[in-house]
């Protein structure tokens, strides 16, 4: 698990790794980070759950279901993780 302070760039890299573990063909260069990413990458709820499991393994953050709507774009997802990491540390 990652510890210590992580800047947004590092968090973003970790998030992309977690997504790529489920959707290895994802091209993050071509993806708009301010747009809904799940539809773009065809991530269904099972894939999404697996990505969140990967995130929790890397960062120790378990996202409650009530927060799922905060993860709609990659930008808001990273921001959410940063806030949770900040609150935890």
């Amino acid at each position: 698990m990652e510890t210590g302070k992580l800047n947004p760039g590092a968090l973003r890299k970790i998030l992309f790794d977690c997504i790529a573990s489920v959707a290895p063909e994802a091209d993050f260069e071509a993806l708009r980070t301010d747009r809904p990413w799940r539809e773009e990458l065809e991530i269904d709820s099972f894939d999404f759950q697996n990505i969140l499991i990967a995130v929790s393994k890397r960062l120790g953050i378990e996202v409650p279901e009530s927060d799922y709507r905060k993860l709609a774009t990659l930008d808001t997802f990273v921001r959410y993780l940063a806030e949770r990491m900040g609150a935890a540390g």
Binding site: S45, Q49, I53, S56, E62, V63, E65, S66
Partner: peptide, 18 residues
């Protein structure tokens, strides 16, 4: 109902709407 069921469960045990 689903959210209440899942609220106390770890990620891997959460039920899907499916």
């Amino acid at each position: 109902w689903l959210e209440a069921h899942n609220a106390t469960r770890p990620l891997a045990e959460r039920a899907l709407l499916a």
